[in-house]
Design a protein around this nucleic acid. Structure first.
Lengths: 145, 145
DNA sequence: CTGTATCCAAAATGATACTG
DNA sequence: CAGTATCATTTTGGATACAG
């Protein structure tokens, strides 16, 4: 992942215009789809997208609502999502400026899919926890033996 | 995330049996669903799950097919997925032992959702790349000015 | 073949301080 | 309010060597 991430981060300067002729081999390292998947494979991104699907929201509101995210990471993540065209950033020139983040049409198509993921998690969390308990029990007994 | 991940990793000994009474507040740090989401927010996990959906496969086959993953990370990821009950591990006692990984029924229900994510990525990669290019162009010009 | 253990380099994060 | 910059720390990952 290191090399890929590095390449992606260098992008701000050189926009490598990938040929783009799907379908790609998702398992090949050079696959553009993997770049997208990498982006989505982010805890905060998923959470933020889900939250924004409910309507526009300001920076610190978001910060408070998504428990556990630091200012720095939230800022970084928002910037990446904006760059990807998944959300929009609008500066409201009030006295202490406020910034409103909103999901874009593109982002919304994605958030629907993400919600499906969240629904899966909710529906199956118990099964997963049970599986973990069973696995851990097996490990523990093996260690004891 | 650090604290949560650490807590999750300590689990092998103490299985905290979460009460489990949905729906939880996905945005709260203590939410079990977030534990699942964290797990899915992993590049390799998503890729592996997708690959396994196509049928059982051995360790080194997987390693070769999922380009860019190291032996160490693949091993770790497989172990976590197995613990979560998403895939099964079967040791075949051939002379140099071979190990076959297969998706479980639970894992399959998830892989369907993941596939939707992959489909989204394929369908929208061009939009994302375009958005990135536009964003970068705006940044560059702003810097030049 | 399928891993685990170790050591080392790289990357992500948190805390803090500071700007517009 | 909404960030950015910096620094110390933690976490993660790759490479290598080795074991069942």
């Amino acid at each position: 992942m290191a090399r890929l991430a590095a390449a992606a981060k260098k992008a701000p300067s050189g926009h490598q215009v990938t040929p783009a002729t799907p379908p790609w081999d998702v398992y090949s390292a050079a696959c553009p789809t993997r770049l997208v998947l990498d982006r989505l494979a982010d805890k905060w991104a998923l959470l933020i997208l889900g939250r924004l699907a409910g309507g526009p929201i300001r920076f610190n509101q978001l910060r408070r609502q998504i428990e556990g995210v630091s200012q720095k990471v939230l800022s970084q993540t928002l910037k990446r999502l904006e760059r990807d065209g998944l959300l929009s950033r609008r500066v409201v020139p009030t006295v202490p400026v406020t910034v409103e983040y909103a999901i874009t049409p593109l982002g919304r198509t994605l958030s629907d899919t993400v919600r499906a993921l969240a629904r899966w998690a909710e529906a199956n969390i118990e099964s997963v926890l049970a599986a973990q308990a069973a696995y851990d029990a097996a490990q523990t007994s093996r260690a004891t033996t």
